[in-house]
Design a protein around this nucleic acid. Structure first.
Lengths: 115, 115
DNA sequence: ACATTATTTCCATAATTCTGGAAATATAGA
DNA sequence: TCTATATTTCCAGAATTATGGAAATAATGT
């Protein structure tokens, strides 16, 4: 009987385990909280609108992106809290008391905390 | 034409996007560099030996685990550098200049850098 | 050589996921 | 209301992945 957190993480990982979907998610992460219209994502990544819609649905079901309507467009944005939660789960207890293992992770964080 | 890093990341995410495989990987991450024999993993997680073998192969192909023989047993261990690389890729440019987004990631890292 | 333990490989079925075309829905503007 | 734009839904075939039983391979000890 797997934990709920494990199951949720598998959902998120499955959503990201796809070339287009990972590219979409990363684009939204880089875009920031203001998000981007579905059409703009489609043009930028050269993805068919129906395929993009399916991909965004998968990412949305996994809780990785949120959406809101703005006129004719639907704006998608990354859910940063969800991403953070997933990363936290993957890192959990990773260092196991060994500083040599921790160090690179700390380095990532310092880089992330650049601003 | 996706970047090589994106393709590699999709491989790693696909490998982790599976309940047993994620549980196996996390167990190995917590176990540390010394690793654990396939049979011990199978007993600990209650997975059939052939299924476990297939799962370990997938994780190995994705570069997430390494293996070495020790007598009759084969010892598997997490590849921490690969894990770090994946996390780094997922976090890339995430903060986008916004400190409010960065903060939780930095908090994770400080926690990871506990030792 | 034989028996035992450890793990993998082979195989076939079942289940899931991916893809793109066509039609449907929703909003805005003339 | 009519037209154009934006996005989603429906559908079916194709492709990939998951599962477990049985046999095969590898190493150890007798």
């Amino acid at each position: 009987m797997p934990t709920a957190k494990l199951t949720k993480s598998v959902e998120a990982l499955s959503a990201l385990a796809h070339e287009s979907r990972l590219a979409i998610f990363r684009l939204l992460v880089r875009t920031g909280p203001e998000g981007m219209a579905a059409g703009d994502i489609a043009r930028k990544l050269d993805i068919l609108p129906n395929t993009l819609s399916a991909s965004l649905t998968v990412l949305g079901n996994a809780g990785l992106v949120a959406s809101r309507r703005d006129g004719r467009s639907i704006i998608y944005s990354a859910d940063y809290a969800r991403m953070t939660g997933l990363l936290e789960f993957l890192m959990e207890d990773c260092c196991n008391g060994d500083a040599a293992i921790c160090a690179p992770l700390a380095a990532i964080a310092n880089k992330a905390a650049c601003c």
